[in-house]
Amino acid sequence: MKVAGIYLAVGQSRRRGEPKLSQELSPGKTVGGAAIQQLMRCGIDPLIVVVRADDPLGWLPSASEDTERWRTETSFTAHLGLSFSLRCGMNAVLPAKPDALLVAQADQPLIQADSIERMISVLREHPELDFAASGNDGSPMPPALFNKTLFPVLERLDGDKGAKEIFESSDYRGVVLEWGSKGGFRKEEAAEKDKGALKRPRK
């Protein structure tokens, strides 16, 4: 199963005047860049990092790190809603004809490679599923892996709608993989609190 990825880094959040994605979790590892390094360990190819046109991109991993498999794509339409950034990424990634598409958001620095690999494994073993999403106390959330059966649906999302309506629709079959409390997929807000005591996903 060929898995491609879209890493949505189009937010403009700042903390204390500094872009959140540029904040360092540890020396050399930024909030925005940490997950890219993990995703690269999962065989995702290509990974499209969707960025804003005005982003100086200082948070990206160094150019020497797997840049053959990941690249940036500038979303000029990011302000029109998340769906436009997603389409920007999909237009870049679909020519590679992937079987599944991982969609992750850049404010989730605690993404772990082995968690993503589990997600891929589930979809590989159960190709009848349309998606595998991460869980947050039962609620599906990114990162999520979408079977190619859902690509046309993802392309039709509108405005600021993310994949929530897909997760909630009875039209599609999916699983939610709960990684445990304070586990790997919590958002960046949690990351600050948990810094230094990051928990790996339960196995």
Binding site: E125, H126, E168, S170, D171, R173, G174, V175, E178, W179
Partner: peptide, 28 residues
């Protein structure tokens, strides 16, 4: 539009990662 169906007995089946394999086998 894709044919509509859902998992029996639940809107979205929740898997705990430790049960993923068993859970999927049942549902498949």
């Amino acid at each position: 539009m894709k044919e509509s169906y859902r998992f029996k007995g639940g809107f979205i089946l929740l898997f705990i990662l430790t049960l993923v394999l068993a859970g999927c086998a049942q549902q498949s």
